[in-house]
Design a protein around this nucleic acid. Structure first.
Lengths: 191, 191
DNA sequence: CGTTAGCTTGAGGTGCATCAAGGGACGTGG
DNA sequence: CCACGTCCCTTGATGCACCTCAAGCTAACG
């Protein structure tokens, strides 16, 4: 993927909902969130992107979500047009779109049918699987980000993690460092 | 799209979660639902497909959802391999996947952040937009289907529709025939 | 007309939200 | 090096939107 690397500070915008879809992006380091807002400010985070992930491709000629850096982040971009030219690239994009769709479907199940405990368990297991960080997670995102991803409030996320620790499922070293001490139980919570 | 037309009776399965991804399908008439289940039977409907819609394409070599006919339905199928051969088809599939992704993202916002009233309004407006049926909707799906799509219970869907009628937003001729009498207000509820 | 499946309505309970206050870590300036 | 502010997180008390349980209604169909 050819493009200029760009450094982003925390909360810095990559693109806004409704603006032209001209580039696609790849995360080099850090993390990016995409989200949609309701008129009164309610926010739903659609996806987190971690190093190696592509993001920003759209069905239409404008972005349906906004994208921001979760923390200090480096990304590279490629012109959308470069995808259309190259058949190889286009086919890769198609695979990525389908993978994104699969992830969105997983989250639909979580938001539609799981309890707070199950949601947080799903989030932890999913994050662990993606980072291959054994059982020691270094979360780049805040409690508010997690809440807005899981359709909960920050208080519920915090209480749920505290309860998980009380049950011996996790160990919270500090807010951003969480160890999965009984991963099998967490996995069971995702059914 | 080449393939044999198949008639399905109500609730008949098209494919099951976990089975091989060999065909993609197109709805000719009727409606299809795709869904995922939790171990205890909780169901999340991922999408409804209406005449003209393609469904069944997957990121992996097996289906991540199950698919069933919502009512008497006719579909046609095409071999997955026919897509890989034809560059034109492949590009169409990519567009479809991106459109599906966009729809999934819309539903994520609904499930994560909207109230019951807003969810039902979103559902009605979305269905009306897709069928271009002016303001008289003929719903092929049951209240249970709507509930499992919106992350609610059947009772809440029913009560919400009753309340909408009391507010003059809709007129419920019978359970499957709903008129949108004040569509602008419903649209506002989706913000 | 009776049966049944799906829908509606009612009463009561609960899981999570809301509102409020109190830590804890980190940075900044004296 | 310590006071102080700020941001984020945690904890507590209370409320409410939606769920659960239960019963009645309606329409389609034999």
């Amino acid at each position: 993927m050819i493009g200029i690397a760009r450094s982003l500070s925390r909360d810095q915008e990559v693109f806004a909902e409704g603006t032209a879809f001209e580039f696609i992006y790849k995360v080099i380091s850090g993390a990016v969130r995409t989200f949609r807002l309701l008129a009164d400010g309610r926010r739903q985070i659609i996806s987190f992107y971690l190093p190696g992930d592509l993001f920003g491709f759209e069905a239409n000629s404008f972005h349906a979500t906004s994208a921001e850096a979760v923390c200090e982040t480096v990304i590279v971009s490629a012109r959308r047009s470069s995808l259309i030219e190259d058949e190889e690239q286009r086919s890769r994009l198609s695979r990525y779109a389908l993978r994104e769709l699969l992830r969105a479907q997983d989250l639909l199940l979580t938001l539609g049918r799981r309890s707070a405990l199950e949601r947080v368990a799903s989030f932890l297991i999913d994050f662990a699987d993606r980072t291959e960080a054994a059982d020691a997670l270094a979360l780049p995102m805040s409690r508010q980000d997690i809440a807005d991803y899981l359709g909960l409030t920050i208080e519920t996320v915090s209480r749920t993690l505290t309860e998980m620790q009380a049950r011996g499922l996790v160990h919270i070293q500090n807010a951003r460092q969480i160890q999965l001490t009984r991963r099998a139980v967490l996995t069971d919570l995702c059914e």
